[in-house]
Write a protein that binds this DNA or RNA. Structure first.
Lengths: 135, 135
DNA sequence: TATAGACTTCGAGTTAACTCTATGGTTTGG
DNA sequence: CCAAACCATAGAGTTAACTCGAAGTCTATA
């Protein structure tokens, strides 16, 4: 079975070796084995697990909470419900983030056209004047 | 014209007074006036500007870059193009974030059903066994 | 008039998530 | 056989974005 060194994994996941070692220090990678002289030896499944960790990070989950999840994984089937609930919560969280981003996007688009008009008119005053109908 | 104290603005924008003062310290609020004895006096337009700042923050823009934008605003019409470009970049950035979130969501949903099945089956092994057809 | 409850500044402290430095152990090619 | 290029650890340093404490000012009310 193919294995990988820390720098290979770092390259594959677009992380630095520092970051990977930091994750390990924080307890996110208890599954990674070592060579006799202590080097980390990553299996394909370890890379998959790291991708899940990256996914959880992308949802905004702090590393301490990700560790809790990893601990649950190590504990086995007795924690299946907790893990399921956690993912449901993450899902709700991501949905909320999407909503938030949508609102943000609307404002940004509004600003884009605001500045387009202002630029074309040569001045921002164009927006102030439009609102006051000439008497 | 109605004005607001720092704590009123904090409440309205769901920020703390500490955060508002921090923003001011960082130069994000050069427009906010003061009472004769030094208290900040927020106008409606200041609150609008703060909402734009919050929007930029929501796009993931760091405070130093937001300050650059605020400085451009203070400089007037000569910076209209820069500001327009900045919003276009922000828009692209938010679009990228949305894409990223979508991918994240797919993995999360996948995990939700993975754990649902595992929970119902009482063990995670259900997923490993499915892949190896019985010989 | 004094106490409470706003507000102010300055600067220190906190937290998360890296990021790096120092030091040292293997392995490998010229 | 030794220098380069990996790997390791421990622990210090960095950065962003707050967050707070101390000390002081102002204003309104009992």
């Amino acid at each position: 079975m193919k294995t990988y060194s820390i720098s290979e994994v770092a390259k594959e996941l677009n992380l630095t070796v520092y970051t990977l070692r930091y994750y390990d220090k924080e307890g996110l990678m208890p599954f990674v084995e070592r060579t006799p002289n202590g080097n980390r030896l990553f299996k394909e499944s370890d890379i998959s697990a790291l991708k899940v960790i990256e996914c959880l990070k992308a949802t905004g989950m702090p590393i301490k909470e990700i560790k809790t999840f990893i601990d649950w994984c190590s504990e086995g089937d007795s924690t299946l419900e907790q893990r399921y609930k956690m993912f449901l919560e993450r899902k709700a969280n991501v949905e909320a983030q999407m909503e938030e981003l949508k609102k943000t996007m609307e404002i940004i688009q509004h600003k884009c056209s605001y500045y387009k008009t202002a630029m074309d008119g040569g001045t921002e005053d164009i927006h102030k004047k439009e609102k006051l109908a000439k008497p």
